[in-house]
Structures are given as C-alpha cells and as structure tokens.
Design a protein around this nucleic acid. Sequence first.
DNA 1: CTACGGTCAGGAACCGGTTCCTGACCGCCC
DNA 2: GGGCGGTCAGGAACCGGTTCCTGACCGTAG
Lengths: 333, 333
Amino acid sequence: MRRTRQVTILSVAAAAGVSKSTVSRVMNGTPTVDPEIVTRVRDVATRLGYRPSGTAQNLSRGRTGIVGVLVPDLANPLFAAILKGISAEAEKDGYRTLVADANEQPGEELRHLHELARQSDGLILCGPRMSTPDLAGLSELDEPIVVVNRKPARSLFPSVTVDSQEAVDALCRHLDALGHTRLCYLAGPAEAAAESDRWSALQSSIRSRTKLLRIPAGAMLDDGHAAADEALATGATCLIGFNDLVALGALARLQELGFAVPDRVSVAGFDDIVYARYTSPGLTTIAMPQTEFGQEAWRLLSPFLQGRKGRRTRTLQARLVIRPSTGPAPMRG
Amino acid sequence: MRRTRQVTILSVAAAAGVSKSTVSRVMNGTPTVDPEIVTRVRDVATRLGYRPSGTAQNLSRGRTGIVGVLVPDLANPLFAAILKGISAEAEKDGYRTLVADANEQPGEELRHLHELARQSDGLILCGPRMSTPDLAGLSELDEPIVVVNRKPARSLFPSVTVDSQEAVDALCRHLDALGHTRLCYLAGPAEAAAESDRWSALQSSIRSRTKLLRIPAGAMLDDGHAAADEALATGATCLIGFNDLVALGALARLQELGFAVPDRVSVAGFDDIVYARYTSPGLTTIAMPQTEFGQEAWRLLSPFLQGRKGRRTRTLQARLVIRPSTGPAPMRG
DNA sequence: CTACGGTCAGGAACCGGTTCCTGACCGCCC
DNA sequence: GGGCGGTCAGGAACCGGTTCCTGACCGTAG
C-alpha cells in the first residue's frame, strides 16, 4: 500500500464517465444500475487494474471483517488446532483472523490485545494467562470478546469451556486399575486457568489409597523434559503432564534415561495433540475438543459482531484416550 | 467496532476545548504543543476512554502496519516456527501478522492472498503451492511480496531459499556408511517446490551402488502413515520422508507393524521440527533454519515496505542432524 | 397535454483520523 | 513604539471508499 494509491475509485469513475457513487454501486453489485453502465465500469476497472482499498472500505463500512485471536503459544498444536477451527468457521462468515502469539509470556498479552483491538471487530482469547483484573479491564475495549478454556472468565465474557472432570475420573480409575498408587503431576504455568482446573480435577478424582504429588514444570516440551528427573525422584509410577507437550517432553527424557515406558513408568497428558498419537509409545491423554473449541468460540462471538445478543457459555466434554504409554504399575521393590 | 464509534477525536476535542488537530498532535506526541494543553487533552482522553480508530489511522496514514502471511498448513510445526520468526521480527518494526492457512489446498491460496492483500502492506508466502503463472500474476497486487522456500520464484520476487544439497550429500554419505543401498523416498505434494528440490538433491547425491525409489505420500502425518506399507514393500532399508511429518507418520506405522527402528528399517526426514527430537527414536533429519527463514523473510520485505530498494535473495544453509532413527542396514535376509 | 409515479445517476455528507497551511499572538530588537 | 521572526493552535483538505438524498428523465394514465 503506497502513501497514495495509483488507481482509485475516482480514476475509474473518470475513465468510465460516471460518478464514484456509481462505481461503488457497480463494485458492490447493487442491482439498480443500468446493465450497460455495469459492463462499462467493470471493463474500465479491470483494464485499469482497480482494486478497492480495504482500509477505506473498513472505515466507511464501520467494520474490518477481522477477528483478533490471542494464543499463548502457536507452537503448541493445541492452539494451532483451535486457531484452525476459528479460521475455518469465521471464514464462512467472511471474517479473517489476526493472530497474536504471546510466547507464553503473560505480561505480553495485554499489549497484544490492545494492538489486535485496533484492527479487529472482535477478539477471541485462547487460554489467556493474564490476571483476572487485567481480563476484566478488557471490557473497556468495548469490542465483543470470547474466552476459550478459562472457566473463571465465564462471568466476564462469553466463554467456551471444557468439562474434564469425568474424563479425569476415568483416567484415575484407569490408573488405579493398573495398580498405580503414586502419581506425579507435572504442573503447568500458574497463570493458566487450565492448570488449576486440571490439578483440582485430579485431586478430587484420585482414590484414597493413591498419593498425588506435584512438581512444577511448565507448558512446553522442554519444561517436561527438564522436570522429568525430579518427577522420577518422587518414586511415582505414573507421570501426568499439564499438557501433552509436557508429557511428551518427559517421555523423551525417560527414554533417554533408559526408563521403559510403560513398563517402568507410565505417562499421561492432557489435550490429545496430534503427536500424542504418533509418538511411541502412543500417549494416554485427556482429549480436548480442539477444532470444536474454535468453532464454538466463533459461534459465540458471531452474533455479537452483528450487534445481536448471543448465548454466553458453551461447555464441551473432554474424554479419555487410552494409549500404550500407560500400563500396569511395576511390582514393588 | 460499532457502525459509528462512541468517542471520537471530535468528542475529545470538544471536551478539551481544542481542535481535533491538536488532539491528534497530542496523541501522536508531536512536540510542538503547549505542555498544559497536552496534559489537559491527555486527561480528557483517558477520562472519556478515547481510543483512536485504527482503521481511520490506517486510511489517513496510508499504511496498515500489517503483513500478510500465507502458509500451507499451520499444523505443520515448520510453518508455525517460520511464522514465529516473522512475527517476532516484524513486531520490532511495529508490524503485525495476518495469517492465512491454506490447509494444503493449492487452489485456495490465490483467494486467500487477495483477501490478505486488502488488509496488508506486504505479503510473505511460505512455500506456496500455487502454480508459477499464478505466482507471477501476484505482481498485479502491487504490494511488496517475499517468497520463502521456493527457489523457482527467485526471479519473480525477493526470496529466502535454502541450500540443502550439502546436507543431503552428508545424509547420503551417512546412509552409505551404514550400508544402506536401497532407499525409499516418500514424496511430498507435487505442487511444493521443496518436493522437487529435495528429490533432485537426493538423486544427485546417492552413491552409484545405491538404488533410490520413490513412493507418493504427501505433506502430513497421515500421509506418511498411509504410505509406509507401500514403502516397506519396496524392500528399502531406509525411508526418507518429504518432511518430518511424513517421516514421523511412517515411523509410527513401522512401530505399529513391529518393525524395529533403526534395527530393521531406518527413517529420515526434512525440516527438523521440534518433535523430531522428541520422538523415540529421535529422527535423523535435514534441519531447515526455521526461525531464520522467518527473520530473513522479514528483513527482505522490510525495506520495500518503506519504499526503499532491498536485496532480492537470501540463501540459508540446511544441515544434517543425525539421531537414532538411522542405524546400520540389517544384514541381507 | 399535463400530472404523477417510478427508476436510476450524481452530489454531498460521512466514516475518523493526519497533516499542510495559515494566521494570531508573543517577545525581541532596533 | 513599531517591525520582524518564531511558536503553536485552528481550519481545511485529504485518505478512498459508502450511502443517503435529490432531482432529472422516462412512461403511463387521466
């Protein structure tokens, strides 16, 4: 985009010998234009290579057709998948997505959001790590906002959340049946709402004879890799990652150390990212409805973009996927 | 963004008893304003919750501060990584990235690009799958365009490409030393420039005593998974994926089938996506400079956005990363 | 033949900012 | 005290479209 464009609606109007209103009508397919004029304007437009300025259209139409999406980390396939879900659904309604990647740095989120808001008609926040006051402060942006996967935000903004309790129950039953009585949770970032969700779901699901330990890790592959040694030192027979990346990181470390999985140690995660199925052993995990997250987020947002009211919450179900990474607990001693 | 905004520059001007020019100057930090007026306007602006319309600024400034990025598939960590590289670098210059994901459907790319162009100052095309005439036709968008990882496009647009030949030579030497004399390449999409690059690099690198076979696969995990059986049937002792996803998909299939890797079959890929290191066995691969791709793409694009001339090509080096997925060829049956 | 109603193109206002140009006002110097 | 130069706020044009309103022109009916 140059400072001033080469061929504008005025050039076309002049060349076609009509007013710019008429050119505008032709370009937008308004039916009340003489067919002969339509073809003439069309011809001139293509001959001159006229392309309407999106910016000018945005201004006069009062909308950009862009939805801003904030993700903690695009390298996490979970968010890539959610984003795909959003894009696909938004596209059907003629919207495009402007993405901001906070690189798992909670402090960056606000800045990104203000930037996004400048160019968009609405915002979707995926698992935002920011503080609740900051989140609440976003209402002053007065743009429609939808939050994905952050339960405490439901009172503030329309939200898509997931109910993992049942799946976590199933996981705990599964592990109990395999004889695991000492589990170690590799915790995620304290700022992630999913972190406390998952931790408390685990706490309320474990059998009384089972001990649940907790080691800080993070949200990325390297975090799981780095935390594995400490987790092993707890004597746990099953490691549960905050998410699949952490679990896979730990899994890789176990294999480096020569710990057979699941023979010596079992591993489980959350999310069911695509790689969870393709690693070896395949990873037992609590599957999030990833694309659906995105779809539903858009469906919640969409009515507000049109100035209508919409529903405010949508709860999806997580489900347990059992793969070879969890097996019978090794015999004592 | 509502049809007409609540608090505009005019509201602020009125409330502060100044002209809108002055408000504009204050908001942009123009130094030639009476300090007392500055504070007054600032106060009024925050009190009213004034937020300048990005769209209006875009129009009058003649730039959007947005760079459009087209990727074949965001679920491919390679492109997620390149995108991160672009975003990080562009952000330093005050630009944001608008992403379009073509979902590996070459036919969608043109449509996405036209959409992107409406809202952006420049475009970065990552490994575009579209035909060369279509690519050439993009010049009529008259926006600065940079192409990543598509050699034949170098004459059309500034490009960041990679030289893989040396690394492929090294791979072939490595495999030869391990005794592999029958390799099978799992080919990528014909539309991908990387596909023909890699194939011809392999062809020119293999030892004369080695047989190089070729099976069509694709660019995604499932493609590798699906192609593995056919590849095995060729009797090859080493499978080389078009990219790491294909290689990992095949690897997973081999493990399902109980083929020990690397004992019975070796596997290698291209890209060095982050999961290549974390699977088991770790994947031997030809590493692309991923973040660097993004950085360099931005650096090529940036001068053109400012109306200056810039260099037109940048060639990066791929390098071989050897991991346990390649090992000695099994003894002849 | 005139009055009336309907169709459709042009003019102008508008979207919300930025920036050039102008001129009021001030202080300094002769 | 008057002339001159510099500072800085306001007015207006501009960015490139969309859309409302107006009025010219047509055909039809009375």
